[in-house]
Design a protein around this nucleic acid. Structure first.
Lengths: 116, 116
DNA sequence: GCTTTATATGCGTGTGTGCGCATATAAGGA
DNA sequence: TCCTTATATGCGCACACACGCATATAAAGC
């Protein structure tokens, strides 16, 4: 039996500001590309530079931002640093947003197809 | 190359940019306050101004941003405009982020308590 | 028509932040 | 020690955007 009311949290303005900051971390395309590249598993900075096509400096900075937000974990091994997704909530989060966007886009395509 | 985890989406850079934009919409404290105020149900702009304590102009602008992102629906009735959450994925999205943040903060509190 | 009420928008400013460039730090090899 | 490789960081610029203020639009009442 599913819940009749999905237990709405009461959130303070401060809590909402924290949530906003978390969303802001996810609001950059390059950071999402890095997270997406890390979906299959741990990668070094160099690998991520190759996979995303970004500059080394930029990739490094974004990785730091993601790690600071507790989304990534850092592991040093010799000359290389390996990053891995440390917050599994990223996966369902992406699923939710993707599903929602697919619906929105289906609506938009309908309007466009209708000549609106 | 077998894929043991077929649940992961393969996303283009364009798709990731769209997802980033969606997160950016959610990355503003005032917009989250508006969404939170709308959790119980439909409200007019004036009510939202009172509830959030923002200026009328600012609230109106943010509501427009949220509506443009397909997160809110608009209904006009006489002099008033009523907004309501039109994308139910907001609720589990908030749950995920809140849960994740609670874990992060528990970790941080631990470190602080340990004198780190 | 004019006035009042509810909502939306144009403009200017300040701030945050992403990016490129160059350079710094760290680790390993000769 | 010096050099190479892998990663991180300081600096400067440019762009996006949130906010406040004033004003514009829209609807209802007189």
């Amino acid at each position: 039996m599913s819940r009749p009311k999905p237990a709405l949290r009461r959130l303070s303005a401060d809590a909402l500001a924290l949530i906003a900051r978390r969303f802001a971390v996810l609001a950059e395309p390059m950071r999402l590309r890095l997270l997406h590249a890390l979906f299959p598993g741990e990668k070094s900075v160099g690998e991520l530079v190759t996979l995303t096509g970004g500059t080394q400096a930029n990739v490094s900075r974004h990785l730091q931002t993601l790690a600071q937000a507790q989304l990534l974990a850092r592991r040093k091994e010799g000359l290389q640093v390996f990053y891995t997704i440390s917050d599994p909530s990223i996966f369902p989060l992406c699923e939710l947003v993707c599903g929602s966007l697919e619906k929105s886009h289906a609506r938009q395509r309908k309007l466009v197809a209708a000549g609106g």
